[in-house]
């Protein structure tokens, strides 16, 4: 039982045809583990996240991702979510006309295979939103429409809490958050991992969030590959040295 990424190659579909971004990624996330991925802009972190979630613009060309033994490439986007995968997006999409409350109920029903109990559900939603510092008026608003950058990120974690997937990929959920919001969001993630059997892949640029969410492993990612791995101390080291040495090494190997 784990989320296993094995020699994954991914192309992004561009107007000029497919372009290879991931060049053999290996990573295993066991239940209960938090993995941080760090790496320079454009190194393919979001590509990894989108490819796993099944975004149509990204194509797995070889290798595999399995979730508790299920081959993700054989599942549609919604089937992956129902299998237990969740992606908190770097740029959550605005969906005009669909209210947050209606969306959450529909998603919960889809994930659980049955509608949530009417009475407890509303309470649960309000509680989750309250915990992330979103007041109940957000329920009636269109999904992500007009939300500030920080509010969108909080709303992603509200969803994480309510949908409670087996594995969560958090793509730069900490970017664009003020210091208080960072703590609120981190608390939300910690409540989720506190269950003990959930796996997290945390994509970030900043060690700041790693003071709140303690990773078990840190992976450094350059040009579509993991170039080094270690424990939390690796993040601290990166803070001092930056990526230059890794980028140079990756170039030399290419």
């Amino acid at each position: 039982m784990s989320l296993v990424i094995n020699d994954l190659h991914v192309d992004v579909l561009t107007e000029d045809g497919p372009k290879q971004i991931l060049k053999g990624v290996n990573l295993t996330i066991n239940p209960g583990e938090v993995h941080a991925i760090m790496g320079p802009n454009g190194s393919g972190k979001s590509t990894l996240a989108y490819a796993m979630a099944g975004h149509p613009k990204y194509q797995m060309t070889s290798g595999s991702v399995t979730l508790d033994g299920k081959e993700l490439n054989e599942l549609s986007v919604d089937e992956r979510a129902r299998a237990g995968l969740f992606l908190a997006m770097q740029y959550p999409v605005e969906v005009p006309g669909v209210s947050v409350s209606n969306f959450l109920r529909t998603a919960k029903t889809a994930i659980d295979g049955e509608a949530p109990k009417v009475r407890t559900w509303v309470k649960e939603v309000n509680q989750a939103m309250g915990a992330l510092g979103l007041d109940s008026s957000f329920s009636g608003r269109s999904l992500n429409e007009g939300f500030s950058g920080g509010e969108k990120k909080r709303a992603e974690i509200v969803q994480l809490q309510l949908l409670n997937p087996k594995y969560a990929i958090l793509d730069e959920t900490d970017s664009g958050l003020d210091i208080d919001a960072l703590r609120v969001v981190a608390d939300g993630v910690n409540r989720y991992t506190g269950q003990g059997d959930r796996g997290v892949l945390l994509i970030t640029h900043y060690t700041r969030i790693l003071n709140y969410i303690k990773p078990d492993f840190v992976h450094v990612y350059v040009d579509g590959r993991v170039v080094t791995e270690g424990g939390p101390e690796l993040a601290a080291k990166l803070e001092e040295t930056g990526y230059d040495a890794y980028i140079a090494a990756a170039r030399a190997n290419a």
């Binding site: 979630a53 099944g54 975004h55 149509p56 613009k57 549609s76 986007v77 919604d78 992956r80 979510a81 129902r82 969740f86 992606l87 997006m89 959550p92 999409v93 969906v95 005009p96 006309g97 669909v98 209210s99 209606n102 969306f103 529909t106 998603a107 889809a110 994930i111 269109s142 969803q159 949908l163």
Partner: peptide, 29 residues
């Protein structure tokens, strides 16, 4: 406005099937 692949991806990535996602958007509208 156009209901595009990004809306569809966002909604389906939360487990909602594609037909239901489209219905949800139009109904809300």
């Amino acid at each position: 406005g156009r209901f595009d692949d990004e809306h569809l991806f966002y909604l389906t990535s939360r487990g909602i099937d594609p037909v239901e996602a489209k219905r949800l958007v139009v109904m809300g509208f």
